[in-house]
Amino acid sequence: MAAASGVACMVVVVLALTAGITLIMFRTGSMSPSIPAGAVAVVQRVPASSIEIGDVVTVDRSGDLPVTHRVTSVEAGAEEGQRIITMRGDANADDDPFPYEVTSVRIVLFSVPGVATVIAGLGDPRVLGALTLAATVLVVWAFWPRTPREARA
């Protein structure tokens, strides 16, 4: 089980570095019911030129938290590769108040409901300390010198 977890962690790191894939945690229900609060989404950075109406994308905002909503319109921007998009959360009645000028966005590949609280909990110092202690005990137990089986008999 520990080996499988280690391999999964390595795969996630390689995907993050090579394919621009990361995780986004949802704190609000603005994308409910398709992505409820407490969900985690797997997102990938893509050029703005590949955005289509209906895509769920995350837009980075300077000095503010990113916003993840569904694209409602796409227009060409002033520069090549730039797009001006409007977005709306699935649970919202109106579009976001201002359009976003973007050259790249993070598109939502899929989401998993209810996982955000588990991931956030893993960042708690007490949990990290307990995991570190458990890993230390496991390593010490695995490499502790043992007596040969013949000597035990």
Rank of each mutant, 00 (worst) to 15 (best):
A41D: 00
V43A: 15
P66K: 12
P66H: 03
V12H: 03
A37M: 10
R88W: 13
V115T: 14
S34L: 14
V102M: 03
A135N: 02
M87W: 09
L15T: 01
G81D: 10
P113S: 04
L122R: 07
V43G: 12
V140I: 11
A93Y: 08
A76H: 10
T72N: 06
A41P: 12
V46H: 06
M31G: 04
R61G: 03
F110M: 09
V59L: 10
M1Q: 07
D55K: 02
S104I: 04
A153K: 13
P33W: 10
G29H: 00
V108H: 05
V46A: 11
T147L: 15
G63N: 10
S73I: 09
T136M: 14
V12I: 05
P33N: 13
A91P: 00
T136H: 00
A2Q: 02
A78M: 12
V67Y: 04
T147S: 14
A8C: 13
V57T: 05
G77S: 10
G6W: 04
Q44F: 05
L131A: 15
F98I: 02
V56K: 00
V108N: 09
V102P: 01
G54Y: 06
P97T: 07
V12Q: 02
R152E: 00
L138H: 08
I119R: 04
E52Q: 10
R61Y: 05
G20S: 08
E79L: 15
R45A: 06
A93F: 13
T18V: 14
R106K: 14
A78Y: 08
D96T: 05
I51D: 09
I24Y: 06
S62V: 09
D124W: 11
I35M: 13
G81F: 13
D64F: 09
A116T: 07
V46Q: 03
A4P: 05
A48G: 08
P125I: 09
W141E: 07
